[in-house]
């Protein structure tokens, strides 16, 4: 019997598989596909202080082994998330979930995180300083160590739950940002968010995405994400949620060997509604194949020796 459980800053997960923010809504809608209680946890749709429609459509462009999205943080706003979405999820999902918070100023991050922190259902707060799809905020925080530090300090000052910072890969050296997060009091890191990308329609000779650029994700980015998790694991002493193109149980193990304590599955949910379920069901057998009895034993295993 393989033990799949892991612990993220004291929050125990039955297994390390978490659907990534923005690819699973607020979770409850996936109950029509399968019993979501098998999931380690759920990273909720990115939430801002005010409701947002997001960017104009088209918001999606296909790529080789992935896609570009430019949704732009469409969400009903933190008050509606707390009043409407969390209760709906609570009815069907019994475990703690991960709030994902975005903002356009340091104060806004802090106010939204403070509200989420008070919710019993929330186990971890994931602070998104890396959305490539919103102007005047989002990624500009995530690419500047000074701003990231300010956000982390402001959020930590008003919260009690573990705060994980979701990092952008669109930086010269991700370990610099990771170190700034650690120094400012972050409890953990989630990486990576999407890579800034674009596609052009040959017939119209214009960008496919209305917002011109968007975030690239999917299996194509897995090696980049893996490398960054590996580097960050060496640079800081914080638990890492590994994200980026994970599509199979093998990918989960590989990401954990690089240094991830848990993983988030994003793009795979969009093409395979049962992706997380399939991965969770395949994990025990895949662990056995590679001689793993306790999955948590392999975290950072690629750094040994």
């Amino acid at each position: 019997m393989v033990n799949l459980s892991v612990s993220l800053s004291g929050v125990k997960l039955d297994n390390p598989v978490i659907p990534a923010s923005g690819t699973f809504g607020f979770g409850y809608e996936f109950m029509r596909f399968y019993d979501i209680n098998i999931l380690g946890s759920i990273a909720l749709k990115g939430t801002t202080e005010e409701p947002r429609f997001g960017n104009p459509t088209p918001r999606i462009a296909e790529c080789e082994a992935g896609l570009i999205n430019s949704v732009g943080l469409q969400n009903p706003g933190v008050d509606n998330v707390i009043k409407i979405e969390l209760p709906k999820l609570k009815k069907v999902y019994k475990k703690q979930v991960i709030a994902n918070v975005s903002g356009f100023s340091v104060d806004e991050y802090a106010r939204t995180c403070e509200k989420m922190d008070r919710q019993e259902q929330i186990g971890i707060i994931e602070v998104n300083v890396s959305c490539p799809n919103v102007h005047s905020g989002g990624m500009s925080f995530g690419t500047d160590t000074k701003f990231v530090s300010e956000v982390v300090k402001a959020v930590k000052a008003v919260t009690t739950k573990p705060v994980y910072i979701k990092l952008s890969p669109n930086v010269t050296d991700i370990t610099e940002i990771a170190k700034a997060c650690e120094a400012s009091g972050a409890d953990g890191l989630s990486l990576i968010n999407t890579l800034l990308g674009m596609r052009i329609n040959l017939k119209t000779r214009k960008p496919i995405i209305a917002n011109k650029m968007g975030g690239f994700s999917g299996p194509a980015v897995f090696p980049v994400a893996l490398r960054m998790v590996y580097q960050v694991y060496q640079a800081v002493n914080l638990p890492i949620i590994g994200i980026g193109g994970i599509s199979s149980a093998e990918d989960v193990i590989e990401m954990m060997l690089a240094g991830a304590t848990a993983v988030e599955i994003g793009a795979a949910n969009l093409v395979e509604p049962f992706a997380c379920k399939n991965i969770i069901e395949q994990l025990p057998e895949t662990c056995q194949k590679y001689g793993i009895e306790n999955l948590s034993d392999i975290i950072g295993g690629a750094h040994n020796g």
Partner: peptide, 22 residues
């Protein structure tokens, strides 16, 4: 018709504004 990501309501890629909300 709209360019879709997932087709199952997960990604919000094909949202539109209506009188009764998004």
């Amino acid at each position: 018709e709209e360019r879709m990501g997932c087709g199952i309501g997960a990604c919000m890629g094909c949202s539109c504004k209506t009188i009764t909300g998004y």
